[in-house]
Structures are given as structure tokens and as C-alpha cells.
Simulated scan of single mutants.
Amino acid sequence: MLLFLPLLLAGIALIAVGAAVDGMLYLMSIGVLLLVVDLLYLATRLHLALHPAPGPLTGSRRQRTSEYRLPCSTPRLRCGGSFG
């Protein structure tokens, strides 16, 4: 979150300067782009906070792959979800 506040303030300042001074519309465009980057940063942080990536110590390999096993109703497949 250290990056969020400076990006937000810089975007607002660039939009204000670009809107107030004639011939500086490019500053307003850069300010809008900074605000878009800021919102994407915030959305990414929120997504990572709600859906953390599984680490290597979150359980054994069998526990993590057990939810992907197929039922043993097909005679060609071996039970346990292994295809090889």
C-alpha cells in the first residue's frame, strides 16, 4: 500500500494542473492514466488478499490433487485419477 497513496496524489495533481492550465491537456491525460494504474494496483492487492496462492507447505501432493480425481465408473481409467 506504500505505492497507492503517492500514485493517487500524483494522478489528482496532474489532472488538476492539466485542467487549469491551457495547453497542458497532456498532463491531464497522464493523470488519468496514473489513476487507472492506481485502481489496477488496488484491485490486484485486493484479489491477492482474498485469493492467496497456495504455497509449497499447504499440504502434501496427494491432498492437493485429491479433489481432481475422477470417479471409477470408466473401466479404461485406473482409480485415483492417474492417467499414466
Score class of each variant (00 low, 15 high):
28 M>C: 08
7 L>E: 02
38 D>T: 11
30 I>C: 01
51 H>Y: 15
44 T>C: 04
10 A>I: 07
28 M>W: 04
38 D>M: 13
29 S>R: 07
43 A>W: 05
14 L>E: 01
33 L>F: 14
60 S>E: 07
55 G>P: 12
55 G>R: 15
17 V>H: 01
31 G>H: 00
49 A>D: 11
21 V>D: 01
53 A>I: 10
34 L>W: 01
54 P>Q: 12
4 F>M: 09
30 I>P: 00
27 L>K: 03
35 L>Q: 10
21 V>Y: 02
23 G>H: 02
63 Q>R: 12
10 A>Y: 03
20 A>Y: 08
55 G>I: 15
54 P>S: 11
30 I>H: 00
64 R>K: 12
30 I>A: 03
52 P>F: 07
7 L>D: 02
23 G>L: 02
43 A>Y: 05
20 A>V: 09
42 L>I: 11
41 Y>G: 09
36 V>Q: 05
34 L>F: 05
49 A>N: 13
62 R>E: 10
34 L>Q: 01
30 I>G: 00
37 V>F: 15
6 P>M: 02
20 A>N: 11
26 Y>F: 15
65 T>G: 04
11 G>W: 03
47 H>C: 10
17 V>L: 13
45 R>A: 14
47 H>F: 15
19 A>M: 12
31 G>D: 00
55 G>V: 15
46 L>G: 15
